[in-house]
Nucleic acid binder design. Structure first.
Length: 426
DNA sequence: TCTGGGGTCCTAGGACCC
DNA sequence: TCTGGGGTCCTAGGACCC
């Protein structure tokens, strides 16, 4: 048995914790560069502000309804998430943090408990500890717990808790759920299913397995089994190291100069190197991409991508920046209005794996002593940045001034920066 | 003026091996 | 008339998730 705890309108709820005046008001949170809606309060949904829709198209609506608009404040949301997860950890022997606002709880053997009461206690405790409202769904499999959670959210009469365990409960829940709302069924598969007269989760659960295998492959078969109460998605207790790491941003304004693009790429490469070090990993393939607006006229569109592999996996900022800048050289074209760029690192291995013998490349001295020093330098850099703030110490080419994403409605980092709190007080 | 930023898994098909 | 029968590895692309 599993429970899925999901924070309600998480980013909006985070903003409301620190600004109670936002309660009962329509509130939205925008994506990076203040582009799209990525979180909406119930009031904002009711007005017709859609998930993922570009904000500039709804400017009238926003003004008309006095909607409170915020730039995404991931420092705040990440910290609030950690507090929610810490609270949930006390409620089950094992938990899986599935996303920034969702957590699966292992409820194996919890059948003898009063689950309804227990779920409400979870809600009460998270609310008291963090101020964040959550919904709880309980089912025999993760997919059923997901479905239950959706019901809890959609039906206010349930008080934020939904349990689908008995056969009639499961039957009724699946019958009421459209296929496109099943976890693991996206737009494409939903369209295919509807074309074959499979409209509800119940229809899908009883569809012929060979047909599902043929058209939705093994992942679709698993979803089907999960709906039928057979668990095939176990709780993932340890997160395996990432296989790819990507840092990319849309620019606050169009960038045309090679130099500013270099600054951006150096910044993204530095972030990737830092993320690698946080994971205890190293990468040996670096991919750089830069693109002009994909909404521009056809002749003004451009997207360049270049990958460079290095002979020895690394998480050294200086090396990755150097390699990324070289990759950028080969894709930069004069005369385009660049709107976005990014760096991706892959072919990732663990720090613990034995190193290959170095080759004399990239004019870096590969002697073990120098590598050792480079590692120590990165440790020192990370320690200083952790203490004094990201970006305190960085390579000179890592410069955000020319291209920085728009963040015009950013709230203070209430829980992670003293300086931001002092600002609030002032 | 203005449209996010991350990830995962699976499959098909080609190159290559003996 | 007829043209083997296994494998593995890699990559691109398509689906999905938040």
């Amino acid at each position: 048995m599993y429970a899925l705890v999901d924070c309600n309108n998480f980013y909006v709820s985070c903003e409301r914790v620190f600004n109670p005046a936002l309660r009962d008001r329509p509130v939205v949170v925008l994506s990076n560069n203040d582009g799209c809606f990525i979180a909406r309060s119930e009031e904002a949904k009711a007005i017709g502000l859609n998930m993922g829709a570009p904000a500039f198209k709804s400017r009238e609506l926003l003004r008309e309804h006095h909607v409170a608009v915020y730039s995404a404040n991931f420092a705040l949301y990440g910290d609030m998430s950690a507090r929610v997860m810490k609270t949930l950890d006390d409620f089950a022997p094992d938990i899986e943090i599935y996303s920034i606002d969702e957590c699966f709880l292992d409820f194996s053997g919890f059948g003898r408990f009063d689950l309804e009461k227990y779920a409400h206690e979870i809600r009460r405790k998270v609310r008291r500890n963090t101020g964040i409202p959550v919904s709880v769904g309980i089912g025999a499999t993760k997919t059923l717990a997901k479905a239950a959670n959706r019901m809890a959210k959609k039906n206010p009469a349930l008080g934020g808790v939904s349990i689908i365990l008995s056969q009639p409960q499961v039957h009724a829940a699946l019958e009421a759920m459209a296929v496109e709302h099943i976890w693991g069924i996206g737009r494409q598969y939903a369209a295919l299913l509807h074309n074959h007269y499979i409209h509800t989760a119940l229809d899908f659960a009883s569809a012929p397995v060979p047909w599902v295998q043929k058209n939705l492959h093994i992942t679709g078969v698993r979803v089907q089994e999960e709906l039928n109460g057979q668990s095939c998605l176990p709780l993932e207790l340890v997160r395996s190291p990432k296989q790819t790491i990507c840092t990319s941003r849309s620019f606050g304004r169009a960038v045309t100069s090679r130099e500013e693009l270099q600054h951006a790429v150096a910044h993204f490469a530095s972030r990737c190197a830092f993320k690698l070090r946080t994971e205890g990993s190293r990468a040996s393939l670096i991919t750089v991409f830069a693109s002009a607006s994909s909404y521009a006229d056809r002749e003004q569109r451009y997207r360049g991508t270049q990958s460079v592999s290095i002979p020895e996996a690394s998480s050294d900022t200086m090396l990755l920046v150097k390699v990324a800048e070289r990759a950028l050289e080969s894709i930069y074209r004069e005369g385009y209005q660049y709107k976005k760029a990014g760096v991706m690192v892959s072919a990732i291995g663990s720090n613990c794996e034995p190193e290959q013998l170095s080759l004399l490349l990239f004019d870096t001295d590969p002697s073990p002593a120098k590598q050792e020093r480079a590692g120590q330098l990165m440790q020192a850099v990370d320690a200083l940045n952790a203490r004094y703030g990201t970006g305190t110490l960085r390579v000179a080419s890592d410069n955000v001034s020319g291209w920085k994403s728009r963040q015009e409605r950013l709230s203070p980092r209430y829980t992670t920066r003293w300086s931001d709190i002092l600002e609030v007080k002032a």
